[in-house]
Amino acid sequence: MFSSPLETLLTISLFIISVATLGLVYRVIKGPSVPDRVMALDSIGINLIAITAIMSIMLNTDAFLEVILLIGVIAFIGTVAFSKFLQKGEIIEYDRDN
């Protein structure tokens, strides 16, 4: 079924990460409070990075390495923006001293 032990290992880890992502999707839908959902979405982003890395090994290409860094940056900025909205009610304030 699989051509090499490495491919077997990668498929198994892809399956495990998919199950973990499904668990996080459950938390996004069910999560009683908004911070639960934000944390779950952030973790989905991290899992997406892992899936991209595994897929780039499976496809034997290095064209997706920028995507990995890109998802990391976007997930971080998105989470920071959402946390600031939850904390202060506005994302970009005019003058933080008053």
């Binding site: 900025i77 923006a81 994302i91 970009i92 304030e93 003058d95 933080r96």
Partner: peptide
């Protein structure tokens, strides 16, 4: 945008 988020306008 990250600078805008951490500081202010």
């Amino acid at each position: 945008v990250l600078i805008l988020l951490a500081f202010d306008l």
